[in-house]
Amino acid sequence: MKRSGPLFTLFAGLALGLVMLSLNATTGEAGAPYGGAPAASPSSARPTATPSTKPVPSNPAGGKTAYAGRTDDDTAAVSVSVRGDRAIAYYCDGRTAESWLKGTVADDGSMRLSGSKGAKLDGTLRDDRIRGTVEVGARDSAFTARKAVKPSGLYRATTEVRGATIDGGWIVLPDGRQVGIVQRGDVPGPAPRIDPETGAVTVDGERLTARPVLP
Rank of each mutant, 00 (worst) to 15 (best):
V78R: 02
V78A: 02
S81I: 08
V82H: 07
D85E: 10
D85M: 08
R86I: 07
R86Y: 06
I88A: 11
I88E: 13
I88W: 01
A89V: 04
A89E: 02
Y91W: 10
D93L: 00
D93K: 01
G94Y: 06
R95L: 08
T96W: 08
S99F: 00
W100P: 06
W100M: 13
W100K: 10
L101H: 10
L101F: 05
K102G: 14
K102P: 00
G103S: 12
T104P: 00
T104E: 13
D107S: 15
G109W: 08
G109I: 06
G109E: 09
S110H: 01
R112C: 04
R112M: 11
S114I: 09
G115C: 01
A119S: 15
K120G: 12
D122H: 10
D122A: 09
G123T: 03
T124M: 06
L125R: 13
R126D: 09
D127W: 09
D127Y: 08
D127V: 10
R129M: 11
I130P: 00
I130V: 14
G132W: 01
G132T: 09
G132E: 04
G132A: 11
T133C: 05
T133N: 13
T133M: 12
V134Q: 06
V134W: 12
V134G: 03
A138M: 08
R139G: 00
D140K: 14
D140N: 15
A142C: 00
A142T: 11
F143Q: 05
T144Q: 12
A145V: 08
R146I: 12
R146W: 03
R146F: 03
R146Q: 10
K147R: 15
V149C: 01
K150C: 03
P151F: 05
P151N: 09
P151A: 09
S152M: 02
G153C: 10
G153Y: 01
G153E: 05
R156V: 07
A157W: 03
T159M: 09
E160K: 14
E160P: 02
E160W: 02
V161Y: 05
V161T: 13
R162D: 14
T165N: 11
I166V: 15
I166P: 06
I166R: 11
D167E: 13
D167W: 01
D167S: 15
G168S: 07
G168R: 02
W170A: 07
W170Q: 08
I171P: 02
I171R: 03
I171S: 12
L173D: 07
L173H: 06
P174E: 08
R177V: 05
R177S: 13
R177M: 10
Q178G: 11
G180T: 04
G180W: 01
G180Q: 13
Q183P: 02
Q183M: 15
Q183K: 14
R184N: 09
G185M: 10
G185D: 12
G185C: 11
D186E: 12
D186N: 14
V187I: 13
P188A: 11
P188H: 03
G189N: 01
P190I: 03
P190Y: 04
P190D: 00
A191C: 06
P192C: 04
P192G: 13
R193Y: 05
I194D: 04
D195I: 10
D195M: 06
P196R: 07
A200Y: 05
V201Q: 09
T202Q: 07
V203W: 02
D204S: 15
D204I: 12
D204F: 07
D204W: 02
G205V: 04
R207Q: 14
A210Y: 08
A210M: 06
